[in-house]
């Protein structure tokens, strides 16, 4: 029982970490507070569902379709909708407000489109739903695949950001958007890429989630919320922080669902959020910079 809970918690946590990384890139580097993030996740989940159901495409291969599509979608959304707002913003605060409002509108557009296409029913499909024995606990194979995917994607991103020049440039923008241009970094391009990568990660997260969870067209808000909580816990723009905070949140939720009640997981998320806000608003791993 305990082992099952811990492994399920890690699977869920890995997924949260994956999606939170995308959001932390969007908010930390592109300075966009994207409230439609959860809808992008759900859209990818539906894509995986269609690919698997209609054409029998394995979700792992489905990633190869969903992630580039997510990236392209993010690239377009940034260029068409967000870039003009960035250009007109007088300050960081006004951009924050504008981006919150515009992505709140986008949330309804994407959600509406999914409702038209798929209705509001709970959706799921059967992929690798066979039990595998892990340390004496029986875990569905799809969850292990999900964990593996989350670890690979997250790890690759972390290495990319830490060891490549390009990743360093993006981190420079996160730390100091004003001085980054002085060393020859194109902040606008960096922001666009960060936003697009964020959407790519959302797509990856959506595909992963679809393999082991049921989802509905209106479930996006909850994912956005959880990703935001993880981002704040880990410290905005901090990839490693998002990873650890995601795992913590996944474990806590699974424990609450197993030993208390599945209906209280969001309440548990909120309680953690409240505690972080009161205790360390700069994040568990961030140094307060204000």
């Amino acid at each position: 029982m305990l082992t099952t809970t811990i492994i399920s918690g890690l699977v869920l946590g890995g997924t949260y970490a994956l999606i939170a990384m995308g959001l932390t890139l969007q908010y930390g580097i592109a300075r966009i507070m994207n409230l439609s993030y959860g809808e992008m996740i759900i859209a990818a989940a539906f894509l995986a569902y269609v690919l698997f159901g209609q054409w029998g495409v394995n979700p792992v291969l489905g990633l190869l379709v969903a992630v580039p599509l997510g990236f392209a979608f993010g690239y377009l959304v940034y260029g068409l909708m967000l870039r003009p707002l960035v250009a007109r913003a007088a300050s960081r605060e006004s951009l924050e407000i504008d981006s919150i409002l515009v992505t709140f509108g986008l949330l309804f557009v994407i959600q509406g489109a999914m409702l038209v296409a798929f209705g509001s029913n709970y959706t799921s499909y059967n992929y690798l739903n066979v039990g595998i024995d892990v340390f004496g606990a029986v875990i569905a194979a799809n969850r292990l695949v999900a964990l593996g995917l989350a670890v690979v994607a997250g790890g690759a991103l972390y290495l990319l950001f830490t060891y490549t020049l390009w990743g360093t440039a993006l981190r420079a923008v996160a730390v100091s958007p004003r001085s980054a241009p002085l060393v020859g970094i194109d902040v606008n391009r960096a922001a666009r890429f960060a936003f697009a990568i964020g959407c790519g990660l959302a797509a990856a997260g959506g595909v992963v989630i679809s393999t082991y969870q049921t989802f509905t067209a209106t479930a996006g808000v909850v994912f956005t919320m959880k990703a935001l909580v993880v981002v704040i816990m880990g410290g905005v723009g901090n990839i490693l922080g998002a990873l650890s905070a995601g795992l913590i949140l996944g474990l806590v939720e699974t424990f609450v669902a197993t030993y208390l009640d599945p209906g209280l997981t969001l309440a548990a998320t909120y309680l953690i959020f409240l505690a972080v806000l009161l205790w360390r608003p700069a994040g568990l791993f961030g140094r307060s910079s204000r």
Partner: peptide
């Protein structure tokens, strides 16, 4: 299509 139209109107207003 109500939510879609709603969202688009809203984005337009912000712009």
């Amino acid at each position: 299509h109500y939510p879609i139209i709603l969202g688009l109107i809203f984005i337009a207003i912000v712009f």
